[in-house]
């Protein structure tokens, strides 16, 4: 009986797995309404489309191919669409922004790789293939982002970083509420996101849990990067060095003499062996040339 049950369970799991995988391959992205209606604060024109093309070539082209050429990478599943096609162009700007930002299955997330401005520029490039497209600009004023001030406050007791976001308007200080906010630590090969993406509360701040064991430099300093995204004030980035990491002093692998190092830091034994062998052969060859000179002299007599 048990074995029959087992087989049954296996079949059910298998069927669900297959169904689920089909589900995830479907065209349905389930984009939240407020994301779908989001608009770009960057005007889509020749200039931004051109900037977007450069970003596209570097990040998107290897899978999506050139728009209009139908040369996307067919071996991927699902096949990445040609972005000039109706399937893509019929979506709202907000949809495209959401898709680029979050990614799914084989489509990677560009949330950390590309800034918001870069993502909109890519969309400007994609839209340049749609003649009938008319842009609706967002009411966000990018110039207002300069007014925003970010303040970090580290609480050593509970290892939390509180991030305040305030705008110094002429009328007084405005707290940024419901602004999307991300915290990163700079690492060797890019930014490491700390905690989740949070939104500021009604008092204009968010609390991030900071890990207790993150290595810093020799004195424990860590470069913190805060990325705030507000409906009205746009995208704001703030960098600050905080002494909250574990002091770490690991000499770099290229500091000492080694096989893999530069010529000036070559191991002594290689330098000695190589040069002495060259010297030896050169001396012998010079000696031989000298004997030939002697030989000629003898003949001269």
């Amino acid at each position: 009986m048990i074995s029959t049950n087992k087989i049954y369970t296996t079949i059910v799991i298998a069927v669900f797995t297959v169904l689920l995988s089909f589900q995830s391959y479907s065209q349905n992205w389930d984009i939240p309404a407020n994301k779908s209606s989001k608009n770009s604060y960057i005007p889509f024109n020749n200039e931004t489309a051109k900037a977007g093309e450069a970003i596209y070539t570097k990040n998107c082209q290897s899978c999506h191919g050139n728009p209009g050429k139908a040369n996307s990478l067919k071996t991927l599943k699902p096949v990445p669409p040609d972005l000039s096609e109706k399937q893509t162009q019929s979506r709202t700007d907000g949809d495209l922004f959401y898709i680029i930002t979050t990614g799914r299955v084989v489509m990677p997330s560009f949330k950390i790789v590309l800034s918001e401005e870069e993502r909109w520029k890519v969309i400007a490039f994609i839209r340049s293939y749609n003649k009938s497209y008319v842009q609706v600009l967002s009411k966000t004023d990018p110039s207002k982002s300069k007014l925003v001030k970010i303040v970090l406050d580290f609480n050593a007791k509970n290892n939390k970083i509180r991030v305040y976001a305030k705008a110094n308007e002429a009328s007084g200080v405005v707290l940024l509420k419901d602004a999307e906010i991300m915290l990163f630590a700079n690492r060797y090969f890019g930014k490491l996101q700390i905690d989740k993406t949070l939104t500021t509360n009604s008092e204009g701040y968010a609390d991030f849990n900071f890990p207790k064991d993150l290595p810093g430099d020799k004195t424990g300093n860590i470069d913190i990067v805060v990325n705030v995204n507000d409906e009205l004030y746009g995208e704001i980035e703030h960098q600050e060095k905080l002494n909250i990491g574990i002091p770490t002093d690991k000499p770099a692998l290229n500091e000492q003499r080694a096989i893999w190092n530069t010529l000036l830091k070559a191991p002594i034994w290689i330098i000695v062996t190589y040069t002495s062998l060259i010297l030896l052969v050169t001396l012998v060859l010079l000696y031989i040339l000298n004997t030939l000179r002697k030989l000629k002299k003898i003949g001269d007599k």
Partner: peptide, 20 residues
Amino acid sequence: LNWNGSLEQEKIILQSTRIL
């Protein structure tokens, strides 16, 4: 190189060839 086939020259050639 002014070869004249003298013993001295032969010796030089022989020795140098040997070294090489």
